[in-house]
Amino acid sequence: MTVLPANDIVGTNKSRRPVGLLLVAAPVLLVCWLIIWPIISAIIRTIWLPDAAAEKRFSLETYQFFFSDQYSINNLMVTLWTTAVTALILLLICLPIALYLRFATNRIAAYVQGLAIFPMFVPSIILSYAFIRVLGPNGTVDLLLNAVHLPHIRSPYLTPWGPVLGLVWDNIPLTVLILLSGLGNVSNQSIEAARDVGAGRLAVLWHIILPRISNSLLVAVSFTVLGIFSAFTLPYVLGPAAPEMMGPFMQRTFRDLNDPTTAITQAVIAFGFCIVFGLFYVYSVAKNRAP
């Protein structure tokens, strides 16, 4: 009987290469078809516009309009403001939760984790209406305050703080999970070693834990920013009518004003901001994978 060498059974590198490429081909083609092509198409449609004679020519007039229109700029600004405030509040809320979940050894931690992940299973529309019923005018909080003869609250509903509160609640699970996965890479012994050389809790957090989870922080912020820029339901239901966030703004421009070119321009501008954080994310993942 002839014994074949191992590479005859598993295949040589050369023969395996097409199989590997075929395996990634399907998702790559899907990404190209559903993401890359629409992006390229959107950019082309916003810079290759028909003139008076209906002949297409290169033009940046839709972008000029966006950046000269105060209403559009206000919408972009309120989106950036909401993004920054939400990201900051999320980190301030989620970092202590993630730290607690990483280092707590008692049973309560399991319940806290359950609570932190719970918003993931609540659809945005239900969250929005729950928010209105609780914090809106004549909501539960108002009724309770009224019952004890206290004045009405200034409801965040229909103010820029409405989407902020909703988006924070909605993004807590993902942010906690990302930070928790980063904290999983911080070994107990490296923290004990820091305490052993004299570091108190704050020094351990600042000098040991935060530098070790900086990539996770970056990823969490990137995901939050990407999510907020594409958010629609929460800003639409909870936010003010004007200025409005980019999601509802695009939808209204497209549907109510029946102006797809301007809506696509707004989308490309929103994409321009998102791509910066997307590149941050890709850079951070690549850095982690570097040998």
């Binding site: 070994s187 012994q189 490296s190 305490r195 052993d196 108190g200 070790r212």
Partner: peptide, 20 residues
Amino acid sequence: VPPERRPTGMVFQSHALWTH
């Protein structure tokens, strides 16, 4: 007394060096 205030120094099995 917490570890940060003890006059002891510990060497751990896994080195526990701070890689950053």
